[in-house]
């Protein structure tokens, strides 16, 4: 028996629906069809009336979720792709994110965003918007990189009283498998040392974790040990774990699949520079996607975002600095 990242997301939603009558799922094609990626497969049949197909109206989808949350429900929204959350952006950042701060009424909604690239996805089916959402006060942004985290963090997202942007990576849906669902979980807001090392720290999250781990294994053959930190959630961001790792290695490389301007990698470096400047033996480095829209052709796409090769090259370069 093994379970994929996608199945874990499906199972977490099934458990949330079973455990809490306040939970419902709303999104395009999530009903009988089971969602564009099958993340809600059979949930409409198993939980009649609680898994609803939405019109193609992202603004109204999020707005309705907020209204239901005010009335005490705990909606899970599926965006068909993270890219299509932008017509709902206003409701997310101006309504959901500000509600508690303005009124003391919490807004417990979970917005699932199938994120990131698959070859051939092109500019509008590949985006990573976590940095954009993390920019806004009032939102929690989760970026699970493992099957276990996909499951336990989604359950936690539903339980949390604040709006959660849940960035699930499409490339991991089918590629990533675990023997079973987890029985316990790390708390949200804690990063995890995914690989111990002494020579350099790579801080990353989501699908880039696996590229970074592959690069670290290769470099291990050359005798250098890279520590890889999986942020798990980018907001809150576990600065302590990152700084502790940099204290051990003295070198920092941040890797993200999102566009290079600002974002998670810049935030991590800013924090380490502020809180742990003296720990650094070399200038901190970062690796992101290129500063262009995401290209369609796989030959362009595979170079547009970081991968094990480019991460390995960046790490080797930093080791020599």
């Amino acid at each position: 028996m093994s379970i994929t990242y996608l199945e874990a997301i499906r199972e977490a939603q099934a458990k949330a629906l079973a455990d809490d009558p306040r939970v419902f799922i709303y999104g395009q094609d999530v009903g009988e069809f089971g969602g564009a990626f099958k993340a809600t497969k059979r949930l409409a049949q198993e939980f009649p009336g609680r898994v609803l197909d939405a019109p193609i109206s992202e603004d109204a989808i999020v707005g309705a979720a907020i209204g239901a949350a005010i009335e005490g429900m705990r909606p899970i929204i599926e965006m068909q792709y993270a890219d299509f959350s932008t017509p709902g952006f206003n409701q997310i950042i101006n309504q959901a994110a500000t509600l508690f701060w303005r009124t003391r009424v919490p807004c417990p909604i979970t917005i699932r965003m199938p994120s990131g690239g698959l070859a051939g996805g092109g500019p509008f089916h590949s985006q990573c918007l976590e940095g954009l959402y993390a920019h806004y006060p009032g939102l929690i942004v989760m970026t699970p990189a493992t099957v276990e985290d996909a499951y336990s963090m989604l359950l936690e997202a539903v339980a949390i009283d604040d709006p959660v942007i849940f960035c699930e990576h499409k490339h991991l849906y089918y590629h990533l498998k675990a023997p079973a669902l987890p029985t316990d979980a790390m708390p949200v807001g804690k990063a995890r040392v995914a690989r111990a090392g002494r020579d350099l720290t790579i801080v990353t999250y989501s699908a880039m974790l696996h590229e970074a781990l592959a690069a670290a294994e290769e470099i291990a053959l050359e005798g250098e040990e890279i520590e890889v930190v999986d942020l798990r959630s980018i907001k809150p961001l576990d600065t302590d774990t990152v700084v502790a790792s940099v204290a051990r290695t003295g070198r920092l490389l941040c890797v993200g699949e999102a566009f290079p301007w600002g974002g998670v990698t810049a935030e991590v470096i800013a924090r380490v520079a502020t809180e742990g400047f003296g720990l650094l033996d070399a200038p901190p480095q970062r690796l992101n996607a290129k500063d262009t829209p995401i290209p369609y052709h796989p030959d362009l796409w595979s170079v547009h975002r970081p991968n094990a090769n480019s991460i390995g090259a960046a790490a080797r370069n930093l080791l020599r600095m």
Binding site: G122, P123, F124, P293, Y296, H297, P298
Partner: peptide, 16 residues
Amino acid sequence: LGSALGPMRGRDGNVH
């Protein structure tokens, strides 16, 4: 097919 000679030069695809 994502041809470099097409109007979208492989940057965008299919119906786009």
